[in-house]
């Protein structure tokens, strides 16, 4: 894999956008820093200014006041067109060109940049492998209409990554996918993100998606004001205000449990009588506490037996699952 750039920070500095004719700003003095290599999810209600914030970065929308910097460089220091060629951009419904083949779609930016054919060919093949569309030959000459929604979205991600941009902007990229495909593409994207380390600003209105994907979550409230910015566990444990609490929903406590896997809290030793655990169900170490809780509840048991690849790791009690012995906050070191 030839991934070069490891990412550059994106800094919003009192970024404000008021659309012509609008009484109030769509985005109001946003201060936000997405660190190099970080994945930040931007969430909020419909009309909260998420898309606006994203499009300010690649100058599809012009700032009314304030500034945005990529690395040390203000976005207004270069031409909008040059700027966009250094930013990966993926949107809902993939935005693939219906009259271009998969290969042609992925080659869009490299072609504009004048790469030679051989380099484009190599890069395209590499990207298709990366997004899990292999063997490559099967996909190259297909048209978007011949792909499923999930496959289109994968091609959309490959296209956004094509010229190896240090920064990625994604606007509800998985919004149109059915739940099962969505989870699969999310997992793949997370794996890609960890492998290539692009600074990513990811808009979604699905809070669960944000909790799952984000290093940090920025929550916008109506009027385009930043309500809270923090790690998923910070936001879930300490909502800044009533708006955030309501936005996170009444299952906030359970969602927090989804941040930790059973494998992370299972004690290394077993000190329970086997009679006690005989009726306990089995769970995989990779399951989240929330999922394990569901299994335990369904079995009407007091705990679960944790397995990893066929090996028994130990047991977790109902109490362990509800109030994990390792504080969830301690996982931040693991996340980053």
């Amino acid at each position: 894999m030839t991934q070069h750039s490891t990412g550059t920070s994106i800094t919003f500095d009192r970024a404000t956008k008021t659309y012509p004719g609008a009484a109030a700003p769509a985005l109001d003095a946003l201060d936000l820093e997405v660190e190099a290599g970080e994945l930040v999810c931007l969430v909020g209600p419909s009309g909260g200014g998420k898309t606006t914030a994203l499009q300010l970065v690649n100058r599809l929308v012009d700032l009314t006041s304030g500034d945005i910097r990529i690395g040390d460089r203000s976005i207004s220091d270069q031409s909008a067109i040059e700027l966009r060629r250094t930013i990966g951009y993926a949107i809902q419904q993939s935005g693939l060109f219906p009259h271009y083949t998969v290969a042609h779609n992925i080659a869009t930016v490299p072609t504009i940049l004048g790469w030679d054919k051989e380099r484009i060919r190599t890069r395209t093949a590499e990207l298709l492998e990366l997004v899990g569309l292999s063997p490559v030959e099967t996909w190259l000459s297909r048209y978007p209409a011949q792909l499923s929604g999930g496959q289109q979205q994968r091609v959309g991600i490959a296209r956004a990554l094509a010229a190896d941009p240090p920064v990625m902007l994604m606007d509800e990229p998985f919004g149109a996918l059915d739940p099962i495909t969505r989870v699969a593409v999310q997992d793949e994207f997370l794996a890609i993100h960890r492998a290539v380390g692009k600074t990513t600003l990811f808009v979604t209105h699905d809070i669960d998606e944000a909790i799952k994907m984000a290093d940090r979550i920025a929550i916008l409230k109506p009027g385009g004001k930043l309500a809270q910015f923090g790690t998923p566990s910070e936001v879930l444990s300490n909502p800044a205000d009533d708006f955030v609490a309501e936005f996170l929903g009444s299952e906030r406590g359970l969602k927090r449990l989804a941040l930790t896997t059973v494998g992370e809290i299972v004690p290394g030793r077993s000190d329970r009588a086997s009679a006690e655990t005989a009726q306990w169900p089995d769970v995989e170490a990779t399951m989240t506490l929330r999922e394990a809780l569901s299994v335990v509840s369904a079995a009407r048991a007091e705990g679960a037996i944790v397995h990893k690849g066929g090996n028994r790791l130990g047991e977790v009690s109902l109490h362990d699952l509800i109030a994990p012995p390792v504080a969830v906050e301690d996982r931040e070191g693991v996340r980053t």
Binding site: Q55, I81, R84, R85, I91, G95, F97, T108, V109
Partner: peptide
């Protein structure tokens, strides 16, 4: 509009958006 937005967002010039899309 999503298509032309994607095209512009990737750095196509207005002329390229016209001719290619």
């Amino acid at each position: 509009r999503d298509l032309t937005r994607a095209a512009r967002g990737m750095g196509m010039s207005p002329g390229q958006v016209l001719l290619k899309v």
